[in-house]
Design a protein around this nucleic acid. Sequence first.
DNA 1: AAGGAGAGCAACCGCCGCTAG
DNA 2: GCTAGCGGCGGTTGCTCTCCT
Length: 341
Amino acid sequence: MDVKGRGRSMSSTIQIDEDMDLRRGPWTVDEDFTLINYIANHGEGRWNSLARCAGLKRTGKSCRLRWLNYLRPDVRRGNITLQEQLLILELHSRWGNRWSKIAQHLPGRTDNEIKNYWRTRVQKHAKQLKCDVNSKQFKDTMRYLWMPRLVERIQAATVAPANTSINATTTTTATTGACSIGSSTSTKTTTTNNNNSNNYHINNNNLDVQTGQMVLPHGVAIGHDFRGAQVTPSYNTPENSSTAGSSDSFGAQVSPVSDLTDYYNIPVNNNPSLECFQASQAGYQDSLTSPSGYFNNGLDFQAMEQSNQWLDGGDTSDNLWNVDDMWFLPQQLNNNNNNNI
DNA sequence: AAGGAGAGCAACCGCCGCTAG
DNA sequence: GCTAGCGGCGGTTGCTCTCCT
């Protein structure tokens, strides 16, 4: 097992609390092995007594954290897919820094990893845009620019055969037709790379190419009508699932997505989709506010241009934006806003 | 090739809520 | 009602790696 990671090394700065005889710092292979073995035999939970009984000189908290974030067999690390990125953006726009709640909708992902992802990728770009990550300005940028682009990329990757680069206007961006996807690696990021999860895969059927709507595990539909920058979220819930398949002009169609277990060999608890629905009922109205105005004052699009690799997981060869988009999209969003008045 | 800066991420810290005594 | 113990969560730290100059 690779326990080296890229963070703290195994050899550095392991501290021992003289009074409590507790170890701190990076875990050793032996400690990992001990913890795994103990949990395999006795199960998890009751972390303090677990730590003692297993003979680990660690706090219960430390054991719990190590297990949940690293050793658990179904945990996945690295290679956050486009679909996952989209879901993180969507859920964060709704719930804020509720990492554990967000993580519940990304099977195999830990709250810690999502939190790190947000801090290292998203917050970095907010900083480069010279706006606060919690500002409406930045949220609108995500909602109206980056999320639609993510959908486009997912669509492109879905439609295009592997190793085929796309250099054409996408069919689902009728009102944002200037968006080109000059991608030589657009299919790469959708091939989920699983270090230790044998059964995980993103089903490309989750994407409704006709509507441009993402339907994700747990029945959460990313229901934005990205073609018009009008946000119309919808969710596959017990209340509305009977109407799945019907649709409004664009965004309301909800694919009858099966339970998570169709996609992941991971236990699913409760019914997060209901929670999702309730959250949307409570707090989504303000997201309908037009972004116009923001794009003409304040946002540093040059900064965006210089730093647009974040949605590609740092792959700078596959930039999300090109210069045309920088100028076209704000204009387009303004137009849509005017039309919607 | 060297070194500095920034990115990435594992692990820790402190707070909060729950529960049993 | 009070308190201690515990689990869970979000924020933060600090170490290593990678990239850039």
